[in-house]
Amino acid sequence: MEVFTQTIINGLVLASIYILVALGFALIFSVMQVLNFAHGSMYMAGAYVCYYWGFALGLPPWAAIAMSAVVLALFGVFLEKFCFRFLEKNFNRTLMFALALIVVMQTAADVTVGGYVKRVPSVLPGLTTIAGITMSKERLIACVIAVFLLLAVFFLIRKTTLGRQMRAVALDRDAASLQGINAHRIAALAFGLSAGLAAVAGGLMGSIISLNTYMGDTMLVKAITLVIIAGMGSIGGLFVSGLIVGLVDAILPIFIGGAGSEVVAFGFAILILVVRPQGLFGQEI
């Protein structure tokens, strides 16, 4: 029973982290029509920056995560303003730029902080026992923080003016501009927000597993998986597909091993793309 609950919790933690990252990715894609392959690197950078603030500067963990989010968010805005904005018409160049960004960021992380076996200090270290089941506090708190953030973002997009503006730009950029919405500003904000979310995800994950410069790649693939299964343009769908993938990722490896469950996950995504390209919840393409 205990193993079962722990596995479920693991699944929820994974799910919430995946959704945080996927949300940012999907946001950039809907608002800017750009497939930001460098998004995984934002996540990785978030973890590394968080480590830096926490370890090198000795900030308490929650502050380190917050600062990391701020830094990355500003970086995201910078990227949109000075780089992506000029490239958005051209798929090839945007792709190249994103890929160049990945390489540069990975190197920067390697050079400044260094390779393996670094961990972000936990927000709440230690174990706790709830209802007779032992689980690590940091996983719980990671889950809680992630869920809180997700609800906040959901609220932002659904209920606030800014969120409405973002949805307008996502639906029809030109029409939104004609309504007086500064599409570039919205794009910059979307970029910043998504980078910040990825950074938090990185910081949270960094306390659970150790850092390495390639964590971004795997997370990118996960984010794309979620978006494919959910379908472009569906926020609610992301939550559902995040839960599915997170739980599968926690449960399946117990039976068929890590790599095997990856094959299953990818195979499923390919199936969806071939059979139902608009995803489970998306609109018709």
């Binding site: 693939v221 998986t225 091993g257 094959v263 990818f266 195979g267 390919i270």
Partner: peptide, 14 residues
Amino acid sequence: TLFFGVAIEALMRS
């Protein structure tokens, strides 16, 4: 194709 690539790589690993 991206997914196919990583799926093949995962298949090779598993």
